[in-house]
Simulated assay, not measured.
Amino acid sequence: MSFNHDIFHRIPVRGLQVFEAAARHLSFTRAADALGITQSAVSRQMSDLEKRLGVSLFVRSGPRIVLTRAGEVLFDRASRAFADLRAGVADCRVADGLSSVVTLSMLPSVAALWLAPRLEAFAEAHPEIDLRVSASRHLVSFEAEGIDLAIRYGTGNWPGVTAEFLASETVRPVCTPDYARRIGIGQPSDLLKATLIHPDTEEGWSAWFVAAGVVVDAVPSGPRFSDDTAALNAVLGHQAVFLGRSVLTARELEAGRIVAPFDIEVPASFSYWLVRPVGQEPSVACDSVRKWILRAFGRPAPDS
């Protein structure tokens, strides 16, 4: 089979990398998240790659994309090539003694709802780092428990640590579209006839009803969960309405699996912080994890 090497030399490797991510996720948005770029940048890269190749790689149908036959052929080869390259990068760093273990502590809900959907993106960015996640509700002891970094939820004034601000958040009611239709949620007072899951935070339903201008003698009782993951699972089961934290419900809202019937929000008392021990010189791997977390939260990642 003949091959035009001039075409190959005109194709940027970055374009192939973006194509491999888009084809693997079948979504320009999810590919953008994985690569840390914008959705429009992915779209531009794919248009340029198709123009250079002279073939269509995707069939676009609104937000959904499907590989063409040419796209399937290229993805088969590209996926294997980039898998080999990622493994090669990891292997060469191991051979040079640069592969490292980093232990990261956080709340179980943050691990399940914020970190877990981003683990693939982290692995792609840092194949040389062996990330260990310690999910716990107690305030960990860095030295005693072998923790390198922690994502904490609070006011940021813990003794003996350096805390970098990651994000503030708000709380607002969330439920599935099916539950909203079944209960007939059209105005804030309609929530009084719904099953309300009570959060394990200072911002409760009483504060939200005040913000919404709904006068209630007593907020209806309901189940209380100490973990947002369990509460969100109950919501996804079309069983209740929950006061969802904006950082932890963002992905489910974006995917349309849950909805926020009203735009009324209550600011949370606590924020997310990236924490490390004072005076401890971070390893290269630890600092790489730190910078990745800052970028994932949309914060600038300055030098150590």
Rank of each mutant, 00 (worst) to 15 (best):
V219R: 03
S246K: 05
V289W: 01
D178I: 11
S136E: 12
W114A: 10
E128A: 14
F270G: 04
S168D: 14
E20T: 12
T162F: 03
R30G: 01
D200W: 08
R93V: 00
L53P: 05
L98Y: 04
R295F: 06
P267K: 07
G36C: 06
F8D: 01
A194V: 07
A268Q: 09
F28P: 00
L236D: 05
N157Y: 09
C92Q: 14
G71T: 04
L26Q: 12
R172I: 00
R14L: 15
A90P: 00
P302G: 07
G222R: 06
S105N: 13
T249S: 14
L85S: 09
Q17N: 03
T229H: 12
H25M: 06
L57N: 08
T38W: 05
V215E: 12
G154N: 09
L232P: 06
V266T: 12
V59E: 11
F75W: 12
D148I: 01
V214G: 07
R60I: 13
T103P: 00
V66P: 00
S79M: 01
L139S: 14
R137Y: 07
V55L: 14
A150F: 08
P300C: 08
V247T: 13
A112M: 10
H5Y: 05
F242D: 08
Q17F: 03
Y272Q: 01
R118P: 05
V216M: 09
R182V: 11
W114L: 11
Y153P: 00
V55W: 03
F262M: 02
F28S: 02
V289I: 13
S56E: 13
D33V: 06
Y153H: 13
P223H: 10
A83L: 07
L26E: 08
T29P: 00
A194H: 04
E169G: 15
L74K: 01
L26V: 03
G156P: 01
E145T: 10
D84R: 14
A41T: 12
R93P: 01
E50G: 07
R132H: 12
F3W: 03
L253M: 08
A112Y: 06
I37H: 10
F3E: 02
E265D: 01
R224T: 11
W205F: 04
A125P: 10
R172G: 09
T68D: 02
R69P: 01
V278T: 15
V89Y: 12
C286L: 02
A125W: 08
S61T: 12
D227K: 07
R93K: 15
V133P: 00
A255M: 07
H138T: 15
P261T: 05
V42I: 11
R245N: 15
A211E: 15
Q239N: 10
G204V: 04
E202K: 09
P261D: 06
E252Q: 14
V18G: 05
M46S: 04
P302C: 03
A167W: 00
P173N: 10
A212G: 03
S79I: 01
R295T: 14
